[in-house]
Design a protein around this nucleic acid. Structure first.
Ligand SMILES: [Mg+2]
Ligand SMILES: [Mg+2]
Length: 214
RNA sequence: ACAU
DNA sequence: AGATGT
């Protein structure tokens, strides 16, 4: 995604924003448990911390008081349909501990979350997230609700109805391979109408379902 | 190169 | 800095 601009610092230090890597590094280097993270925009920082259930008032205030950036109002972007579901997959290590979820595209309210599963990949997570959203929506009769993903890969795999992962079986991920097989089976046996749409991260910022770990 |  | 994928 290129260079990041915002560095948010917290834990073991007064939460705050740094605008340069140098500033962030200085602030964190002698604080053993300090954490930091980079973002493109202030809004992405806020979304990420809310998504992680981080309610630290001082942190949110620090982010909110940071110098201004452009506010992305999803509702004002015609290509983002109201009521849609945004999905994202995440991995701690790649391959690593894998999970995925779907949220309401405007409110960010979590609609489903699966995992963590051991020994998965980013792309498997993104693929399963889309299929889960499709099945979840169709179970509720929401046959016209669009699904947004930032993964070009997963989008292709879903179109082909095939998860073309190179992931090795480890014995710890047998259950995951069953879930993949079940997802492919669902795609093969269901004629869904829901659009699956590329989330344009370059134009719109981080997807609302993002786990905020990058 | 592009997307995670 | 490394991995997953087309
Ligand atoms: Mg993603
Ligand atoms: Mg993400």
């Amino acid at each position: 995604m290129g260079k990041r601009k915002w560095y948010v610092v917290w834990e073991g230090t007064e939460p705050g924003i740094c605008e340069t890597w140098e500033e962030c590094r200085q602030r964190v280097e002698h604080v053993p448990h300090a954490r930091y993270k980079s973002f493109n925009t202030r809004e992405e920082a806020i979304v990420a911390f809310r998504n992680n259930g981080d309610d630290d008032a001082a942190l949110i205030r620090a982010i909110a008081n940071a110098p201004t950036t452009t506010v992305v109002n999803y509702a004002a972007i015609p290509e983002i349909y109201p009521g849609s579901v945004a999905v994202d997959g995440a991995c701690s290590g790649n391959p690593g501990l894998m999970e995925y979820r779907g949220v309401d595209i405007f409110s960010g309210k979590e609609l489903f979350r699966q995992g963590p599963y051991p020994d998965g990949t980013n792309n498997v997570a993104e693929f399963l997230a889309i299929v889960h959203a499709l099945a979840w929506l169709n179970n509720q009769g929401k046959t016209m609700t669009a699904v947004y993903t930032d993964s070009r890969n997963a989008l292709l795999w879903v179109k082909k109805k095939h998860c073309n992962t190179k992931l090795a079986r480890t014995g710890r991920n047998e259950k995951l391979f069953e879930i993949i097989a079940r997802a492919e089976r669902w795609l093969a046996t269901h004629d869904y109408k829901n659009f699956v749409i590329k989330w344009q991260t370059d134009k719109w910022g981080e997807c609302p379902a993002d786990f905020g770990r990058k």
